[in-house]
Simulated assay, not measured.
Amino acid sequence: MRLSPQVLEAVRQEAQRYFRSARGSHGWDHTERVYRLCLRIGRKEKADLDVLRLAALLHDIGREEEDLSNGRTCHAEKGAVLADKILRKHGIGAERIARVVRCIKPHRYRGRLVPDSLEGRILFDADKLDSIGAVGIGRAFLFAGEVGARLHDPEIDVRKTKAYTKEDTAYREFLVKLSQVKGRMFTAEGKRIAGDRHKFMADFFRRLNKETAGAL
């Protein structure tokens, strides 16, 4: 049975409430971009678009708790629990709820779980694609500002620095995580998009290193 526009809109509005005090780097606009990427990839992969719509809208509703705990709480696992409750309240069937939860729970990049459904792999890809390319660069600097990090340190040793500190620069995030995203894609379309976004981002940080060194 197709998901009605009315139920989808009700879920969207409820999900949006979880972002009222969200950090800009992980605000509601991130969810909207992931939603659009999910549909783009989902159509290519012939996935269940209704499951993807719900999973995309709800995938980060546990993010606030992770931010407040400085990463100690897993937002994916928390979000899966919250999503189950929201979907039950809106009359979504148990089988569809299970499929949505199955997407949300393993979508975290540093999580211990691996997505094992087509829709879960698409959500994972869409979420990670929003962390690279031009958007990813903007988000990385925005997050660095949120935690009080410095602008740039081309000599940073990631082994001696920690997340959520003044050394957690955009460049550190690129070295630790963002440069690896391209190789983590599951879907063919995700890999294609990631290749282009990765090149743009890598070129940017190479130029940033040259500019800060006074070479350009």
Rank of each mutant, 00 (worst) to 15 (best):
L123R: 12
R139I: 08
P154G: 05
Y171F: 15
D116H: 10
D125I: 03
A149L: 08
I137N: 03
V135R: 10
R159K: 13
F124T: 04
P115L: 09
R150G: 09
K128Y: 01
A194I: 08
L129Q: 01
D127P: 10
G183Y: 13
G133F: 08
G195L: 07
A144R: 13
G133Q: 02
A140S: 15
F186R: 12
A149W: 04
L178A: 05
A134P: 00
V176C: 02
G148I: 12
K191Q: 14
G195V: 07
G195R: 14
M185S: 06
G190A: 12
A194T: 09
P115A: 07
Q180C: 04
P115Q: 11
S117C: 14
K162T: 09
Q180I: 00
S117M: 12
L123P: 08
R139M: 06
T169L: 06
T165W: 06
M185I: 06
R159H: 12
R197E: 08
I122L: 09
D157A: 10
A188H: 10
G133H: 04
K162Q: 15
F141Q: 02
T161C: 08
A163L: 12
I122N: 08
A126V: 07
A170L: 05
A140F: 04
I122G: 03
T161S: 13
K177V: 13
A126H: 10
E189H: 07
E189R: 11
E173C: 02
D153G: 01
P115N: 11
R172Q: 12
G190K: 15
Y171Q: 05
A194W: 14
V147W: 02
K162D: 07
K177L: 13
A134H: 04
K162R: 15
R184V: 02
H152W: 05
I156W: 08
D116I: 03
K162C: 06
R159P: 00
S179A: 03
H198L: 14
I132A: 09
P115E: 07
D125P: 02
Y164C: 05
V135S: 04
R192G: 01
G138C: 03
R139S: 08
D125A: 04
R184T: 13
R192S: 08
L129R: 11
G190N: 09
Q180H: 14
V147C: 05
K191L: 04
K182V: 15
R184W: 10
S117A: 13
G136V: 02
T187C: 06
I156L: 14
E189W: 06
T187S: 15
V181F: 03
P154Q: 07
T161M: 04
A163I: 07
